[in-house]
Design a protein around this nucleic acid. Structure first.
Lengths: 340, 340
DNA sequence: CACATCTTCCAAAGCGCTTTGGGTTGCTGT
DNA sequence: ACAGCAACCCAAAGCGCTTTGGAAGATGTG
């Protein structure tokens, strides 16, 4: 059943039926009701491919996930972010086009998207230092929003959390508890967020004239095993840390495993603070927070990012939107005074 | 730049340019090369919306994720599955349309998709008992593939792992080690996979005349905290289990936390077997498997599911494809003989 | 009553591609 | 020299919708 058939069955023109269905005013209320009823009865839904061609809008937003071959940076995070964004897209009538491409082909993927009109805008996640995607998308004229930021953070749209401030605060918290040998287990420092976190960490130490110890700093993809192996190595080495600051709950779980195997009790023998993205399947709050954590819901970020991007798509001349979210520090059972 | 302009610039008809670009034989090799070169030089990409309308194919596959409000069942699993499927889609030229809808609206979402022609087929995940989606999609005539299966598993396309066999084998393994009080921490038993796993568990016990103990069986969304709370409750209660069989690594991490807090060493004081989906950020293999586990890569399943679905879309009259994957049991450090 | 103004509807022209159903041209064999 | 046949190319008709630019009829105005 298409528009023409529906119109014929109603003895109306396709024009009128289209207008009735889309809420235009030039149609009598009674006619509109007739049309609506007939459409519903016939289980009619306008062909979305034809509509997209006719309107010139794709009503689709693209998320391009670069596949790196290693544990995808995106993986632990992107599911929740996607769900948050997807909720908003659905509510606003946008489709979500998810594109997995080898990292080397992301530029081609974006060029393709811009040229073939598959999407009205794209979401950019996990920017790296001087991320080429930002310049490229600007050049292509495709509306985009960056979750995170990089470079001077000027002239493009982004939403980010205050990573540096969060990690500075977390470090101060550990220092106040008397810890001096604090380890940092970070995400890959090609990513901007990880660099900022490290800087927050280092600044807090520097402010108290405490040297950052290279053997107590590590960074890589945020997997449980990386957290485990790193913590194990540090704990077994000379001058082991008394506290860990780690960039995700997943890493923290690895740290907990290493500590547990060595008979170290978290919050007593050893302290751990992590960044908690509030992943739905890793709730840190049941029975009081297990980990002391800087926290910020990645799903909420996804929702807000979607809202902003849709605003930008609807208002092409909108000035850049930049939003910085502050981060809570929640005290849990994984931290305590420095022993000894 | 559109096809007509490109054709004009080449002094050819749109027909010929279209054919040249799409690899049809009725065009001289020399002409084809000229067209290709011009297209590349002009950075031309055919408008995908127009192409979709003209061909009648969406070249898009839909994944509908029902939002339940609680920790989405899909969440821990679906990211890896999606990545696997997405790789194949990208390679085959299909787009992935991801649709998050409140659970109550999934039927409407499918009807919409079928009527408006947004997708050529859909992937169905995590089927429940007598899942209404199967009947609905059959009725709508939309090609679909179920990851998992339900009911009599007849007459529709699915790919599943041998859940029952896996859990029966895992239970036998624990029984052989001398364990008699074995706890089952399962996913929500509205899902078919969880029911099968429970049956495997129960059959193994029944085969040795060991009663299944209701207070040692629990099922809910597979979050870390559910694993933790349940294990804690069981361990603190009367007749605590000496072994746990759990439905995911995430649950197992919760169990490990509960055990750790009680000073119980895994593999010595207590045994744990889990099902390992080989999530990329929860690698169980680093330094030898931490958990004894039944394992099957969810990402590989995603890849294969995508392949099958594409086959079905390309061959509408293909007889049902049903694929059952066997599951390995990997022995790790989390199991040992029953103490005492 | 003539004229302007809404209100309500429609015909037709796109949107940018694919595809059907021919036409030309040049070559072969007789 | 001419029919027969490939090889190569094109005009035009869709695909199913939206949207422009009226037209017809109803209503108000001086």
């Amino acid at each position: 059943m298409n528009l023409k058939e529906l119109a014929d069955s109603l003895k109306l023109s396709p024009t009128t039926v289209s207008r009735a269905l889309n809420g235009y005013p030039e149609v009598r209320e009674e006619t509109r009701n007739r049309v609506m009823a007939a459409a519903k009865a016939a289980n009619y839904a306008p062909n979305i491919r034809a509509r997209r061609l006719a309107t010139g809008r794709a009503m689709t937003i693209g998320h391009v996930i670069p596949l790196t071959g290693r544990a995808e940076m995106v993986n632990p995070i992107f599911a929740d972010f996607l769900i948050g964004a997807g909720e908003v897209y659905a509510a606003e009538g946008y489709d979500l086009l998810l594109s997995m491409v080898p990292e080397t082909e992301t530029e081609a993927a974006f060029r393709q998207m811009a040229a073939n009109g598959a999407v009205d805008g794209v979401m950019v996640q996990a920017p790296q230092e001087n991320d080429p995607r930002i310049g490229l998308l600007t050049e292509l004229g495709l509306p985009f929003l960056v979750h995170g930021r990089t470079g001077d953070a000027q002239g493009y749209n982004w939403l980010d959390i205050a990573n540096m401030r969060a990690f500075r605060r977390a470090t101060d918290f550990l220092l106040d508890l008397g810890h001096r040998r604090i380890a940092l287990i970070n995400g890959q420092e090609t990513f901007d967020f990880a660099r900022r976190r490290r800087r927050g960490f280092e600044e807090a130490l520097a402010a108290r004239d405490i040297p950052a110890l290279p053997h107590l700093m590590a960074s890589d993809a945020m997997t449980e095993s990386f957290g485990y192996l790193t913590a194990a190595r540090m704990l077994d080495g000379p001058n082991p840390p008394t506290a860990f600051l780690v960039s995700s709950v997943i890493l923290a779980i690895g740290v907990r495993r290493a500590a547990g195997e060595r008979g170290l009790r978290m919050g007593r023998d050893i302290s751990v603070i992590c960044h908690d993205d509030e992943l739905s399947y890793l709730n840190n709050d049941v029975g009081g927070p297990a980990f002391t954590a800087t926290r910020s819901s990645i799903r909420a970020a996804g929702r807000r990012c979607a809202e902003i991007l849709i605003t930008l798509i609807r208002n092409p001349d909108h000035p850049p939107i930049q939003e910085l979210w502050d981060v809570d520090l929640t005290v849990g059972r994984s931290t305590g005074p420095c022993p000894g």
